[in-house]
Computed example of a mutant assay.
Amino acid sequence: MSREDLLASLMAQARNEGAELVTLRAIVEEASVLATDRALERLGLGDAGAEDDLGELRELLQAWRDAKTSAWKALVEWIIRGALALLLVGIAVRLGAWDLL
């Protein structure tokens, strides 16, 4: 029995016998599963390889985040090194060590 058939039978049961809480919960659960399946199909993620594709996309996104973090760290390190180099040059000039060069 497919999910559509199961949902249809639950709806018929609710109509014929009255809507008990268990029946209503089953209807909601089956409807949500069907809606999820349809949404995944529309997004192109309904096939068997979709899980692997999502895993690869997550790995790619994590690699991008790691690269971005590394780039920012490297930029900050270079700015600090440049500032320290300028400070050392300033100290050398102030102490007269520039004349020794």
Rank of each mutant, 00 (worst) to 15 (best):
residue 66 D to C: 12
residue 78 W to I: 10
residue 70 S to R: 15
residue 100 L to H: 05
residue 96 G to A: 08
residue 33 V to L: 05
residue 25 R to H: 03
residue 97 A to T: 05
residue 56 E to T: 10
residue 38 R to A: 07
residue 39 A to L: 12
residue 87 L to P: 03
residue 65 R to F: 05
residue 94 R to Y: 13
residue 83 A to D: 13
residue 96 G to V: 13
residue 33 V to R: 13
residue 10 L to S: 01
residue 27 I to V: 09
residue 23 T to F: 00
residue 71 A to H: 07
residue 89 V to I: 09
residue 98 W to A: 14
residue 13 Q to W: 03
residue 45 L to F: 04
residue 49 G to C: 07
residue 23 T to K: 00
residue 23 T to P: 01
residue 68 K to P: 02
residue 30 E to A: 03
residue 12 A to E: 03
residue 45 L to P: 02
residue 15 R to Y: 07
residue 76 V to P: 02
residue 75 L to G: 13
residue 70 S to M: 15
residue 27 I to S: 04
residue 96 G to W: 11
residue 17 E to C: 06
residue 33 V to G: 07
residue 64 W to N: 13
residue 64 W to M: 14
residue 91 I to V: 13
residue 86 L to C: 11
residue 51 E to T: 11
residue 66 D to S: 13
residue 65 R to G: 11
residue 66 D to P: 02
residue 49 G to Y: 14
residue 2 S to H: 06
residue 71 A to N: 07
residue 70 S to N: 15
residue 53 D to G: 12
residue 88 L to S: 11
residue 20 E to V: 00
residue 4 E to P: 00
residue 4 E to M: 04
residue 42 R to D: 09
residue 33 V to C: 07
residue 7 L to H: 00
residue 33 V to D: 09
residue 17 E to S: 04
residue 23 T to W: 00
residue 90 G to K: 04
residue 6 L to A: 08
residue 40 L to N: 06
residue 47 D to R: 06
residue 44 G to D: 12
residue 96 G to R: 08
residue 100 L to I: 08
residue 36 T to F: 03
residue 17 E to D: 13
residue 31 A to W: 01
residue 1 M to Y: 11
residue 32 S to A: 11
residue 68 K to L: 12
residue 38 R to P: 06
residue 7 L to A: 00
residue 24 L to K: 05
residue 37 D to K: 15
residue 64 W to S: 14
residue 72 W to T: 13
residue 97 A to Y: 11
residue 22 V to R: 06
residue 30 E to C: 01
residue 3 R to N: 05
residue 88 L to V: 10
residue 82 G to T: 05
residue 32 S to F: 05
residue 29 E to R: 04
residue 16 N to Q: 11
residue 6 L to C: 08
residue 62 Q to G: 09
residue 18 G to R: 00
residue 84 L to H: 04
residue 57 L to G: 10
residue 5 D to E: 07
residue 11 M to Q: 02
residue 14 A to P: 01
residue 20 E to S: 15
residue 82 G to Y: 03
residue 21 L to R: 05
residue 52 D to L: 12
residue 96 G to H: 09
residue 78 W to E: 14
residue 19 A to C: 05
residue 9 S to C: 13
residue 73 K to C: 11
residue 79 I to G: 11
residue 18 G to A: 00
residue 31 A to M: 08
residue 42 R to P: 12
residue 34 L to S: 06
residue 100 L to R: 08
residue 83 A to V: 14
residue 13 Q to D: 02
residue 35 A to P: 10
residue 38 R to S: 09
residue 61 L to W: 07
residue 85 A to G: 04
residue 30 E to S: 01
residue 70 S to G: 14
residue 92 A to N: 09
residue 20 E to A: 04
residue 38 R to C: 06
residue 2 S to A: 08
residue 11 M to S: 01
residue 5 D to L: 11
residue 95 L to R: 09
residue 40 L to R: 10
residue 77 E to Q: 14
residue 53 D to K: 12
residue 38 R to Y: 15
residue 75 L to A: 15
residue 26 A to N: 00
residue 3 R to H: 01
residue 88 L to K: 15
residue 85 A to M: 06
residue 16 N to S: 08
residue 64 W to C: 06
residue 72 W to C: 09
residue 16 N to G: 05
residue 84 L to Y: 09
residue 27 I to Y: 01
residue 45 L to W: 00
